[in-house]
């Protein structure tokens, strides 16, 4: 199935042309990319700090207390969901014809899914006994791998795309 007409349509919308064509730095492509980098620092950064805590760094911080950072982590995630969708509307062909893009989304999906599962265990008070601590540590390790994978995949998007626009 040829989905080029869909890409052409998205790229013809006013929103797409604003993302790619706005001469403004703050309210245009550079500003959206910047928000995407800040959101990454917040979401992946706080998730990393939580993973480090599960591995035993700063173990004096009760995990239940660390939950107070989760709303901030989610804010970073949603900032990146919105800025990411805007970037996607700007360059749909570039992203959606590149397998690395789907790899990035898969990593992020699993990173957030694991975060939710870790949080459920913490709320349920399952942290504490040794066998369950081990499970928690395994989850934190997978979480770290997913974030590292998402960041590498995201950065490699700029170097691995085969088509920039449906016309190009």
């Amino acid at each position: 199935m040829n989905i080029d007409p869909f890409f052409l349509w998205v790229e013809s919308t006013a929103l797409s042309q604003w993302v790619t064509g706005s001469p403004s730095v703050a309210f245009g492509f550079p500003g959206i990319l910047t928000l995407h980098a800040i959101g990454m620092g917040v979401a992946a950064g706080l998730a990393t700090a939580l993973d480090l805590r599960i591995f035993g760094v700063a173990r004096g911080i009760p995990l239940i207390e660390f939950r107070r950072f989760l709303p901030i982590l989610w804010a970073g995630f949603w900032l990146n969901a919105v800025s990411g969708v805007l970037l996607l509307i700007g360059y749909p062909t570039k992203a959606l014809t590149n397998p690395v893009f789907y790899l990035k989304l898969t990593f992020i999906f699993w990173a957030m899914a694991i975060l939710v599962r870790i949080d459920r265990r913490v709320v349920a008070g399952l942290a504490g006994d040794p066998a369950r601590e081990r499970t928690l540590r395994r989850m934190a390790a997978v979480s770290l791998v997913c974030w590292i994978g998402a960041i590498f995949a995201g950065r490699f998007l700029a170097y691995t795309y085969s088509r920039l626009t449906a016309l190009g």
Partner: peptide, 17 residues
């Protein structure tokens, strides 16, 4: 560049916390 972004996350995550 990927390492630069990883370092950024580690820095912001820990210093920000």
């Amino acid at each position: 560049e990927s390492f630069h972004f990883l370092g950024l996350c580690l820095l912001i995550g820990c210093v920000g916390t």
